[in-house]
Design a protein around this nucleic acid. Structure first.
Length: 863
RNA sequence: GGGCGGUUAGCUCAGUUGGUAGAGCGUCUCGUUUACACCGAGAAUGUCGGGGGUUCGAGCCCCUCACCGCCCACCA
């Protein structure tokens, strides 16, 4: 053997290697993008993680997917930018901070806005730092020099620009409408932040007496307390039972208010009693009816969900306590007719985890319809964006079609404060629903506008509310590239290439981005949207904080390595964006699938070690590429297999089949290269200076280096480490920046075009071959298809093949290896025989028997 | 009330345009031959959810049923 064995231990140790390359990549700015270099751009913006603590397994999965795509495209020569960053997550962070304050017995009002925001920024610094470090541990190939945060200076400027432009175009308005009110966070929330839960409730039937004393009407409700705010009872105008009552009045119990009976088509005569109590201030349907019939809107609730002065005797009670009291009261009065069990849906606040109240309040809205039309036009006319898998495009479309206006104001402190300034009058001293205002990009500009509009005496005050988090994330793909400035990055990298994200934020985020972008940039901000599934826990449950079933990616990284975790996640991915389930043992922190991937990394490591031990210290470049003439059957076989692997891998990745590509690489590396090829060439490698040995060495080196490149996007660290030893590359040269292999046959095999067996079927073959599709099928396959038609032929051929194989193996062993070797040499000389595993089985079996059983004395001489 | 996914080996899941049912883990047998025991050689295990249809041939196409899961929706 050689004296210069590469110093590689027999086991791959991930932790040191990973840290080493992560640092080296970053220190050398390996992933820093440069628009001025031109070429074909490939750009991905990270779905910015919320600064709410730390990353979870879903982030690890998503980052692995993106990084694999990004590294691949960088290697195939695209001018690649992966832009990292984080999101301020207005309501989520504020909820956390308020919980902390509550633990100290304080509220946000106790410490004031300024101190609260200081705390928030401090939290952002800590959480953001944690997240960035975690991203590094995942080995992401992002451009850290372009890292952004949704509330940094540039992005805040973009938010102002967007808001002001929307406003000036009449697409943002302030108005008094019914919104979802979360009593826990004491803010409005958008429809999307409401989760409808089915609960076992009741349907209470009440009796309201007619004012003229001629009887009663019976109404049914699931929320009795709202009756305090009733201002009418509605019936269907076609309902023969009740239509004569329309126009009469009722006396509302408890409140003793006189309310009318109105006719409205919305009422379903078949449901309940056919009479509906109308509470315009506390139900979206009733709100609409209230508007149609000019009913009074009586708000009975405070912001915290307790009853206000309109709650009569129940003022001050919590809404659910008030419900009980109202029922008791009506029962005592004899107005409660019956209580039914009733299953219905109740809207819950996503963040606050309490039922939301439909409430009328003054909020800011984005008028969606005109914007959505543009966005829809892109989808319908240009199929943009293109969803993978396609079915999500339908989901996206359906949502865009049915959009209501977007409530963008939140009664919170952490976020982008709304850039509206109110002219406060001396007498009122505070912002009212109808206080006049100006919208401006800065306070100075607001002053100017206010003075021009309201005169010198004006006092102005900025709107205390902040914008919905998704307003700024909606601008993310272009604001991070410099918008509204026409920067070089924006010109070159925008629209971005691919967005990778989960189906759970298609509405929240993907659609908001396409809306914002189609309006402000006139383009859809990404060509493809790759939708991945959720990572579920070992029982198939969605991971969540409340269920406490999260799996910390760092634990698995420490145990098995980043490459192993990435690979385990990606190989589970099927084509269809299905959820994936991660094997995990909570008692031992072990994961079978990650362990299997760790073993694969180790297999790559040891195969590489074997190859390097047998190259006599030469690099693949020094050995030279395998040349056609010296190649033996086994070499040609593995080279052809490798060549096919290259095109399969590229095809799979190009169509987002990352799991498929990962599995193909695994099978080739472990099955073909290690189990077969390496075993086959062991004898040849011991022959001194023979052409046969050289061919084997060249082939080993060539295939190994190529496979490392193919694997690199999936397992960046282990491949980078091995590649440096194999090629003796300098420390600032990276596999990560090498060209990805291209399919380039180095040997002629049966798959070459000039092979007569590979020509398309000429004309009249069989009935089965007459379809247009069949005409393109190579002849070999057609023949196989024909043979299999009766069915039994295949069965027979298979059995025959095995018998043949075993028989020949025995014969080979008996007549001796040299004869067999002669046969193989003959086969080597014939260009159009495709090497098969079966043939190798024969060859290998012969070698094995020869080596171990028969001519042990000759074996001595040989080795 | 609409819509979408899923149901394949003990477990987790692949199965590309219909053409010999696969992988990983687990189980069993053998093996400590100098790349790797985080290994190697080999084995067992499937009425492909049920029923019907099309076809020479269906895990794959069509119909239908069942169960699991998800999304959307203003029925009080």
């Amino acid at each position: 053997m050689t004296e210069t064995l590469p110093a590689l231990s027999s086991q791959y140790e991930p932790s040191a290697t990973e840290a080493k390359w992560q640092t080296a990549w970053e220190d050398n700015h390996a992933f820093q993008a440069d628009a001025s270099k031109g070429g074909e751009p490939y750009c991905v913006v990270i779905p910015p993680p919320n600064v709410t603590g730390s990353l979870h397994m879903g982030h690890a999965f998503e980052s692995a997917l993106i990084d694999t795509l990004v590294r691949y495209h960088r290697m195939i020569g695209r001018n690649t930018l992966w832009l990292p960053g984080t999101d301020h997550a207005s309501i989520a962070v504020q909820t956390i901070l308020e919980r902390q304050l509550k633990a100290e017995g304080k509220t946000r009002n106790d410490i004031g806005r300024e101190a609260f925001l200081e705390k928030a920024w401090q939290w952002k610094a800590e959480s953001g730092g944690t997240i960035v470090n975690q991203l590094r541990r995942l080995g992401v190939s992002v451009d850290w020099s372009r890292e952004r945060f949704t509330m940094d200076e540039g992005l805040s400027k973009a938010v102002l620009e967007a808001f002001v432009r929307f406003y000036e175009e009449g697409l943002i308005y302030r108005g008094n409408y019914m919104v979802n009110w979360c009593p826990a966070s004491q803010s409005a929330v958008s429809d999307l932040e409401v989760e409808n839960k089915e609960v076992d409730g009741n349907l209470w039937h009440f009796r309201y007496p007619l004012t003229d004393g001629s009887g009663y009407v019976e109404v049914a409700t699931t929320r009795p307390e709202t009756m305090l705010g009733d201002t009418a009872v509605a019936v269907n105008p076609e309902d023969d039972r009740y239509k004569h009552l329309i126009g009469k009045t009722l006396k509302l119990p408890i409140m003793e208010r006189e309310i009318p009976i109105i006719g409205d088509e919305l009422v379903d005569p078949a449901f309940g009693t056919g009479c509906v109590k109308v509470t315009p201030a506390h139900d979206p349907n009733d709100f609409a009816m209230g508007q149609r019939h000019n009913l009074p809107f009586i708000n009975i609730l405070n912001k915290d969900g307790t009853l206000n002065e309109n709650g009569g005797p129940f003022e001050g009670l919590d809404r659910f306590d008030a419900r009980k009291e109202v029922i008791d009261w009506l029962q005592t009065e004899g107005a409660l007719v019956k209580i039914e069990d009733y299953k219905h849906t109740v809207p819950y606040s996503d963040r606050g985890k309490v039922p939301v109240e439909p409430l009328i309040s003054t909020q800011w809205f984005v008028k969606i319809e005109p914007i959505a039309q543009k966005t829809l036009a892109f989808l319908d006319e240009e199929q943009s964006p293109h969803f993978v898998p396609e079915r999500w495009g339908k989901v996206y479309r359906d949502w865009l079609v049915n959009l209501k206006d977007w409530c963008i104001s939140r009664q919170l402190w952490w976020g982008h404060q709304i850039p509206a300034w109110y002219a406060i009058s001396e007498t009122e001293g505070e912002i009212r629903d109808n206080t006049p205002f100006v919208v401006a990009k800065s306070e100075a500009e607001a002053w100017e506008k206010a003075i021009a509009q309201f005169g010198q005496q004006v006092k102005i005050q900025q709107d205390p509310d902040v914008l919905d988090t998704w307003f700024s994330s909606g601008l993310w793909p272009f604001s991070t590239l410099g918008w509204p400035e026409q920067t070089a990055d924006l010109n070159f990298y925008y629209p971005t290439t691919t967005l990778v994200t989960g189906f759970d934020i298609i509405f929240f985020w993907v659609a908001r981005m396409t809306l914002m972008a189609s309006h402000f940039t006139g383009e859809i901000p990404f060509k493809d949207v790759y939708i991945h599934g959720l990572v579920r826990d070992e029982n198939g449950k969605k991971m969540s904080k409340s269920a406490d079933n999260g799996i910390n990616p760092l634990i698995l990284i420490e145990k098995y390595g980043t490459d192993a975790l990435r690979y385990a996640l990606i190989r589970e991915v099927a084509g269809a964006g299905q959820d994936i389930r991660l094997e995990y043992n909570r008692a031992t922190d072990e994961s079978g699938s990650v362990e299997a991937s760790r073993n694969f990394a180790n297999k790559i490591w040891n195969a590489s070690r074997f190859v390097m031990i047998n190259l006599n210290g030469q690099t693949p470049a020094q050995l030279g590429a395998p040349s056609r003439d010296g190649l033996e059957l086994a070499d040609r076989w593995i080279l052809e297999k490798f060549n096919r692997l290259v095109s399969q891998t590229r095809t799979s990745i190009d169509s987002y089949g990352l799991g498929e590509a990962a599995k193909g690489l695994y099978e080739f590396m472990w099955g073909d290269f290690c189990d077969w090829y390496i075993e086959l060439v062991k004898l040849r490698l011991r022959q001194d200076d023979s052409p046969s040995r050289l061919a084997a060495q060249q082939t080993l080196a060539y295939v190994l280096e190529g496979t490392l490149k193919l694997l690199h996007p999936f397992m960046p660290h282990v491949t980078e480490e091995i590649w440096h030893t194999l090629t003796q590359a300098s420390a600032d040269e990276f596999l990560a920046l090498q060209p990805y292999p291209e399919a380039a046959p180095v040997v002629q095999t049966s798959l070459d075009n000039d092979d007569p067996w590979n020509q398309a079927e000429p004309e009249e073959a069989s009935a089965a071959a007459h379809s247009p599709a069949a005409a393109a099928v190579p002849k070999t396959e057609t023949v196989l298809n024909l043979l299999s038609e009766p069915g039994q032929f295949v069965q027979f051929a298979l059995q025959y093949k095995q018998v043949l194989l075993i028989g020949l193996g025995v014969v080979a062993a008996i007549i001796g290896f040299n004869v067999l070797d002669g046969v193989v040499s003959t086969l080597n000389a014939v260009p159009f025989v495709e090497p098969t595993l079966e043939l190798f089985g024969l060859y290998y079996l012969g070698q094995f028997i020869y080596k171990n059983l028969l001519w042990s004395d000759r074996r001595q001489a040989f080795t």
